[in-house]
Amino acid sequence: GLDNAKIISKDGEIYKSSLELSGRGLENGGWSQTIIPSAYYDNGKKLKLKADGVLVNANKKVELKIDDKYPKKIDYFGRKVIIKDVKYSNGHLTIKYTTDSSIAYDGGCELNGNSAISTSYEAGSKISGIEFENVEKKDSYALDLRLVLKYRYPINIEIENK
């Protein structure tokens, strides 16, 4: 996807997307993007597409151990994720973690292939929390945070309004 994407008319009008745009890979190695026309776009033949960078889904399984000492730093594709706390109680496993600003958002966590039942975010502390239910107590678990990473790669291209 594109981070902070906007389309600019030849007259300088800015049409900012409320959703991030995502492209589709082509067989020849290029990419394709369809932008749905609307009454908000002028009828000019040329528009500009600008974005601060790109967003990339990053799936990486990390091993979690209940008995480890926390907080614990984890390398997540060169980014820092800090597991603040891991708690197991009566079939529920709760994990709290923080990330830096190069991580856009969570893409839906999994633990040993099962999706989280709830997520939370503590705004003042920037701590994310995820909870899993019906978890069998084990020494370790495979956690996939499925984070979406931001790469600063400014985009400023002219596109044709067809």
Rank of each mutant, 00 (worst) to 15 (best):
A58W: 02
D67I: 07
D106N: 14
N90V: 04
V86Q: 08
Y40I: 12
V62G: 01
G29E: 05
G78H: 10
N156F: 02
E158F: 01
G29Q: 07
E27K: 14
A51V: 04
K60Y: 02
I95F: 04
E13R: 10
K61N: 13
K16I: 07
L143T: 01
T98Q: 14
V135A: 06
P71L: 08
R152H: 09
K48Y: 13
G1Y: 06
L111I: 13
R146Y: 04
Y151V: 14
D42T: 15
L49N: 02
I74N: 01
N28R: 05
G78V: 10
S22K: 12
C109G: 02
G25F: 11
K61T: 14
D42V: 04
I8A: 04
N134H: 11
K72G: 03
A123Q: 13
G78P: 10
I7P: 00
I103C: 05
I159P: 01
L93T: 06
E20V: 05
Q33W: 11
K16Q: 14
R146D: 09
S32V: 08
E131M: 13
E20H: 11
G12F: 07
G1L: 07
L21I: 09
G124K: 11
S17L: 13
S125L: 12
K50Y: 09
I66W: 01
G29S: 06
G1A: 15
Y153G: 00
N112Q: 07
I95A: 05
K137Q: 15
I103A: 04
Q33V: 14
F77A: 06
G53V: 09
N59K: 12
S32T: 08
K126A: 11
E13P: 00
N112E: 11
K73T: 09
S32G: 08
G107T: 09
L26G: 02
L143A: 01
Y88L: 10
G12A: 08
L93I: 14
D139M: 04
K96W: 09
D42E: 14
L147W: 07
K50D: 05
G23S: 14
G129D: 03
D67W: 00
I7M: 12
E110P: 00
Q33E: 13
N43C: 02
K162W: 02
K87M: 08
D85V: 02
V62E: 12
Y151S: 13
R146L: 02
I95G: 02
N28E: 10
V54T: 15
Y70G: 06
K60N: 06
Y76Q: 07
Y121C: 05
G113M: 11
D68M: 01
E136P: 01
G113E: 10
R79C: 01
S120V: 01
K137N: 12
D3S: 11
G108L: 07
D42H: 04
L47V: 00
